[in-house]
Amino acid sequence: MSTDEQTTLLVIMYRRLSDRRLTEIAANIAQGKQDYQSGNVFRGKVNDAIAKLNQRDRPW
């Protein structure tokens, strides 16, 4: 492959990877909105979150 062809290939691959990542980010945002609307989101201070996590049953 020539240098120009290699450059073109790299640009195509970069764009595909960027598009894939944007799709993943959009899916994460949609899931976050759904979780928020259904009340499955914790809101509070870090110390409150740690205390809540420490109250859970641990599998280990």
Score class of each variant (00 low, 15 high):
2 S>K: 14
2 S>L: 08
3 T>K: 10
4 D>N: 13
4 D>F: 14
4 D>E: 13
5 E>K: 14
6 Q>T: 15
8 T>P: 01
8 T>W: 07
9 L>M: 07
11 V>T: 09
11 V>C: 05
14 Y>C: 12
14 Y>W: 08
15 R>K: 13
16 R>E: 04
17 L>A: 15
18 S>F: 11
18 S>L: 12
19 D>C: 01
20 R>I: 15
20 R>H: 12
21 R>A: 09
22 L>E: 06
22 L>T: 06
22 L>Y: 02
23 T>M: 11
24 E>K: 05
28 N>K: 02
29 I>W: 01
30 A>W: 02
30 A>I: 01
31 Q>G: 06
31 Q>K: 04
33 K>M: 05
33 K>Q: 13
36 Y>T: 14
36 Y>C: 04
37 Q>K: 07
38 S>D: 04
40 N>Y: 00
40 N>S: 04
40 N>P: 01
44 G>Y: 08
45 K>Q: 09
47 N>T: 13
48 D>V: 05
49 A>K: 10
49 A>Q: 03
50 I>Y: 05
50 I>W: 05
50 I>S: 02
50 I>R: 03
50 I>M: 01
52 K>T: 11
52 K>C: 00
53 L>Q: 03
53 L>K: 00
54 N>T: 15
54 N>H: 11
54 N>C: 09
54 N>R: 15
55 Q>C: 09
56 R>M: 12
56 R>W: 06
56 R>G: 04
57 D>S: 11
57 D>E: 11
58 R>W: 10
59 P>D: 07
59 P>N: 04
59 P>S: 10
59 P>E: 07
60 W>P: 00
